[in-house]
Amino acid sequence: MAELPSDKPDSTTSGAVRTADGAGSGQVTRAGVLAAALSIVDRDGVDRLSMRRLAEAVGRDPMVIYRHVPNKAAVLDGIAEIVFAELKVDPTDPDWSGQLRAVARAFRELSLTHPRVVPLLVTRPLATPLGQRPQAVVRPVEDILALLTRAGFSGADALHIYRALFGFLYGHVLNELQELIERPDETDDVLRLGLHRLPIGEFPQLRALAPVLASYDGAAELERGLDLLLAGLAATLPHPGGDGQVAPVN
């Protein structure tokens, strides 16, 4: 399980500069406001973000903040937007499966960098119709579709691959970040995971897998999942060349 950032006092952000009496100076921009919001969420979580606290972090009156983001929902959407903007896809890569692996690894790294933002990455885009989402959120979708159609997949199959990949990624990072260990100092894996609470006769498989569950490796688990996912897609989708063979995968 990844370790979440520790709580720290608010610090000055790039959106404005605090003066000696606490008031803000300099130009306040939407980018600066969202950077301050991301900093708060990274440090303290979504529940601790409020428009008043955001205004304090930027060093301005809350009404100044509302000129750039109309409400908290817009702030949450903006946080997801600036994190998704860090996810890059090369639609010209001739190795489609290798590029998807690179995207998956990059998404996991972003999630580990911003663990408290992950719920927003998974849920906020779905709260907005596709055509109304920020371009930074839609860009990875477009680029992955371009990558796959350039490789020869049909548009429908490319969309299927995208959905399968990100459905897997969302589940993986949520599992990696939220899996809890009941007794971290316990050496017995069954006790460490709290599996002793489950009746032996009803949950023999979980108890038998206690050593595997206790030695969870997020990076290795991601690679194994990608092996299964990409191989399965390649085995069931038509070859991009249209000759009826399955698509190659690395």
Rank of each mutant, 00 (worst) to 15 (best):
L34R: 00
L34V: 14
L34P: 01
L34F: 05
A35C: 04
A35G: 08
A35F: 01
A36R: 01
L38D: 00
L38E: 02
I40P: 00
V41H: 01
D42T: 07
D42Q: 08
R43D: 10
R43E: 13
R43M: 11
D44R: 14
D44M: 06
D44K: 05
G45P: 05
G45H: 09
V46R: 14
V46Q: 10
D47Y: 00
R48A: 12
R48F: 07
L49I: 05
L49P: 05
M51E: 08
M51N: 10
R52P: 00
R52L: 09
R52S: 14
R53C: 07
L54G: 03
A55D: 05
A55Y: 01
A55Q: 11
E56G: 09
E56T: 13
E56M: 15
A57N: 03
V58P: 00
G59Y: 06
G59K: 06
R60Q: 13
R60W: 04
D61M: 07
D61H: 13
D61Q: 14
P62L: 12
M63P: 00
M63G: 11
M63I: 15
M63L: 13
Y66K: 10
Y66Q: 14
Y66C: 02
Y66M: 13
R67N: 15
R67C: 04
H68L: 15
V69G: 06
V69L: 15
V69I: 14
V69F: 04
P70M: 10
N71E: 15
N71Y: 07
N71C: 13
N71S: 15
K72Q: 14
K72A: 05
K72N: 04
K72L: 15
A73F: 13
A73M: 10
A73Q: 14
A74E: 13
V75M: 00
D77G: 10
G78D: 00
I79V: 14
A80M: 08
A80Q: 07
A80K: 02
E81G: 10
E81P: 04
E81K: 12
E81F: 02
I82K: 04
V83R: 00
F84E: 11
F84K: 05
A85T: 07
E86A: 13
L87G: 02
D90V: 07
P91W: 06
P91R: 08
P91S: 12
T92A: 12
T92C: 05
D93Q: 12
P94C: 01
P94I: 00
P94M: 04
D95S: 04
D95Y: 00
W96F: 14
S97E: 04
S97W: 01
G98C: 03
Q99H: 01
Q99C: 02
Q99G: 03
Q99W: 00
Q99R: 10
L100I: 13
L100S: 07
R101Y: 05
A102E: 08
V103S: 09
A104M: 11
R105Q: 12
R105G: 06
R105F: 06
R105V: 15
A106T: 11
F107H: 06
F107K: 06
R108T: 15
R108W: 07
E109D: 15
L110S: 07
L110M: 11
L110N: 07
S111N: 03
S111I: 09
S111Q: 09
S111K: 04
T113N: 11
T113K: 15
P115I: 10
P115H: 08
P115M: 11
P115A: 06
R116A: 09
R116P: 11
V117I: 15
V117Y: 06
V117H: 08
V118T: 11
P119Y: 13
P119Q: 11
P119M: 10
L120Q: 12
